[in-house]
């Protein structure tokens, strides 16, 4: 009998990564857009639209890294040394943007360095995450269950391209978030930017979709073989429909739909990537079954996930509900 736990854990991790990219995606995106906005009042608004949430959002990244260690220690012990440099880079970038939230507030009026730390930290983290994604997709050299490649194996045109793609995607989420949370001039500006970012995001999605099957035969086999092809054709179709709906919602000045539609685009793209990769967890050789922790370990930890994840989701939604509505200069003060 094949143990189904590794696959379940694989789905849990995939879920954590999707939630992470959406939640921290929009707040990293807001951080990147910070650079396009010069007015101090608007910068304060942008910051306070994400300030109550960023910490919880980033915890999903800890769940991603921690979850990999919990459920697939072998994968964790291969991926981390292989992607040493981009991972460390991402952590350093996240340090700068993370502390900027509080430091910027308490440093006023001498906070321009923390503005830069927030902007560059957000951009750096987004790029690094995209590079990590690309490096994983292209595969890691493994011998005797250990990373056997070189320190710069991750650095390829493909991984850099993915870095750009993720950064543009996050910026799109950020623009749509601000379109949802702000009013007036700032909202209009973000709506205009969002249209361009949508185009950029689609371009990246299209190119990655072409690039991966052309360069990686294992991905081409998955997509262009029968019967897979029959039930996969909706993926690009849905992507197109979603993109069009986001575009028209932006033109019609809707607040919520551009954000939800972009989230949909992320989910569909992610399903496509997951399909290309699973059951591999460290392409091209290691599957979720190879990398799985012992059955008892996965069982013990999945029980925790099944019981606690709904609770976490409930109180996360509750906190988003508390801070719902537009941020205005009146509510944007750091309230302590």
């Amino acid at each position: 009998m094949i143990d189904t736990l590794p696959l379940i854990w694989g789905l849990v991790l995939a879920f954590a990564v999707v939630v992470y990219t959406i939640l921290d995606g929009f707040d990293l995106g807001v951080g990147m857009l910070f650079g396009l906005e010069k007015s101090e009042a608007n910068r304060d608004l942008m910051m306070s639209s994400i300030a109550p949430f960023w910490d919880g959002n980033e915890t999903w990244l800890v769940l991603g890294g921690g979850g990999l260690f919990v459920a697939f220690p072998l994968a964790y012990s291969i991926i981390m040394p292989a992607l040493y440099i981009p991972v460390i880079f991402m952590l350093l970038a996240l340090i700068f943007r993370g502390v900027a939230f509080e430091f910027r507030h308490v440093a006023k009026p001498h906070h321009h360095w923390w503005d830069k730390a927030f902007l560059l930290g957000s951009l750096g983290a987004a790029l690094a995450q995209g590079v990590i994604l690309g490096a994983l997709l292209q595969g890691i050299e493994v011998a005797d269950d250990r990373f056997a490649g070189k320190p710069f194996d991750w650095l390829t045109p493909f991984s850099l391209f993915c870095g750009g793609g993720v950064a543009v995607g996050y910026a799109m989420l950020g623009a749509c978030w601000l379109n949802l949370k702000t009013e007036g001039e700032l909202q209009q500006k973000m709506r205009a930017i969002a249209v361009w970012l949508l185009m950029g995001m689609l371009l990246f999605i299209a190119l990655v979709s072409l690039w991966t099957p052309l360069v990686f035969p294992r991905i081409a086999d998955k997509w262009f073989s029968l019967p897979n092809f029959y039930f996969l054709w909706p993926v690009p179709t849905i992507t197109g429909l979603l993109a069009f709906s986001v575009y028209s919602a932006l033109r019609r000045k809707r607040a919520l739909w551009p954000f939800l539609g972009t989230v949909g685009l992320f989910i569909v793209s992610f399903i496509g990537l997951a399909f290309s990769t699973l059951p591999l967890i460290v392409p091209p050789d290691i599957s979720v079954y190879d990398a799985a922790a012992s059955h008892e370990s996965q069982l013990f930890s999945i029980l925790g996930v099944l019981i606690l994840m709904p609770v976490i989701l409930i109180y996360t939604i509750f906190v988003y509900y508390i801070f719902r509505g537009k941020v205005t200069p009146e509510t944007s003060h750091h309230s302590i």
Partner: peptide, 17 residues
């Protein structure tokens, strides 16, 4: 990892969030 991983996992699930 088999032994220590789940403890870290529970830390994330019960505490960090």
């Amino acid at each position: 990892g088999n032994v220590l991983g789940p403890l870290i996992g529970y830390e994330v699930l019960t505490a960090f969030f």
